[in-house]
Simulated assay, not measured.
Amino acid sequence: MNNLDWNKFKHVVSDYVGVDADEITRDTDVFDDLYLDSLGLFGLGSHITDTYKLNVALSLVASISRVGEFFDLLNEKGTPVEE
Results as ranks from 00 to 15, higher is better:
residue 34 L to W: 04
residue 28 T to A: 12
residue 80 P to G: 10
residue 38 S to G: 09
residue 21 A to P: 07
residue 69 E to F: 04
residue 33 D to M: 04
residue 67 V to Q: 00
residue 12 V to M: 03
residue 74 L to I: 15
residue 43 G to W: 01
residue 64 I to C: 01
residue 38 S to H: 09
residue 8 K to T: 15
residue 43 G to Q: 01
residue 66 R to H: 06
residue 33 D to V: 02
residue 83 E to Y: 15
residue 24 I to A: 09
residue 5 D to T: 04
residue 73 L to N: 04
residue 82 E to N: 13
residue 48 I to T: 06
residue 47 H to P: 01
residue 68 G to H: 11
residue 17 V to Y: 02
residue 29 D to Q: 10
residue 55 N to F: 09
residue 55 N to S: 12
residue 83 E to W: 14
residue 57 A to M: 01
residue 49 T to W: 01
residue 9 F to N: 05
residue 28 T to M: 09
residue 29 D to E: 11
residue 50 D to G: 10
residue 79 T to L: 11
residue 22 D to L: 14
residue 53 K to H: 15
residue 10 K to A: 10
residue 37 D to L: 07
residue 9 F to I: 10
residue 38 S to P: 10
residue 36 L to I: 09
residue 37 D to I: 11
residue 54 L to K: 10
residue 56 V to S: 02
residue 79 T to A: 14
residue 82 E to S: 13
residue 62 A to N: 05
residue 63 S to W: 00
residue 65 S to D: 13
residue 39 L to I: 15
residue 48 I to M: 12
residue 75 N to A: 13
residue 23 E to D: 14
residue 63 S to V: 00
residue 67 V to M: 02
residue 15 D to K: 11
residue 28 T to H: 09
residue 47 H to N: 05
residue 79 T to D: 12
residue 81 V to S: 09
residue 6 W to N: 05
residue 75 N to K: 08
residue 49 T to L: 04
residue 36 L to K: 05
residue 39 L to F: 13
residue 40 G to P: 00
residue 4 L to M: 12
